[in-house]
């Protein structure tokens, strides 16, 4: 068996650090903050209901402690949403797509287009109102290997989906 182990020069290989990052649409911030508000209204209401109906919990000191904890978590959640949106961005290159996310735990995920099995574009109620879409690229690696890019302009999402599908048809490859 012949086995070679030649050295490789990385000089000619494009670096993912030199890409132009495109931030997500501003509408995503509104979607996230509206969603945040709805969830926390529900959480506060459920907490109040639980304290009201369970005997022994309806006391000033317990109520204030619960309120303080929830208010802190609520504020931190809002702060976290705003911070994380600053880092969310994506970049489309000729052969792959990159997605950057995370505030405390940062990550950059890259998926080559010839590894994409199929894709879907979705929008929730708030997403449709504020004109943002999410695109999910599916690979054979399962959920952890897939990428979900939120905060795309509707036209961008549709164009990207079509472009990826054209690439799939051209490549015609299966894993």
């Amino acid at each position: 068996m012949n086995f070679e182990n030649t050295g490789i020069s990385l000089d000619g290989i494009p670096s993912a650090e030199e890409v132009q990052w495109r931030p997500v649409e501003p509408g995503l911030k509104k979607v996230k903050l509206y969603g945040w508000a709805i969830w926390w209204v529900i959480i506060f209401m459920v907490s109040a209901a639980v304290m009201f109906f369970i005997p022994g919990l309806m006391q000033i000191n317990i109520g204030m402690a619960v309120f303080a904890v929830l208010a802190t978590l609520c504020w931190f959640h809002s702060f976290s949403i705003r911070k994380s949106l600053m880092y969310k961005a994506f970049s489309i290159r000729e052969h792959d797509i990159l997605y950057r996310t995370g505030w405390i735990f940062r990550s950059i995920k890259a998926i080559p287009f010839n590894r994409v099995q199929h894709c879907s574009v979705s929008a929730g109620v708030l997403g449709r109102k504020f004109e943002v879409r999410s695109i999910r690229l599916f690979t054979s690696g399962g959920f952890a290997a897939d990428v979900l890019i939120p905060g795309l302009n509707p036209q961008t999402a549709t164009d990207l989906q079509e472009w990826i599908l054209n690439k799939i048809h051209q490549d015609g490859r299966a894993d």
Partner: peptide
């Protein structure tokens, strides 16, 4: 949540 899933035949 409206979703459009497109699966090419070859996949």
């Amino acid at each position: 949540i409206k979703r459009e899933l497109v699966i090419p035949f070859e996949k």
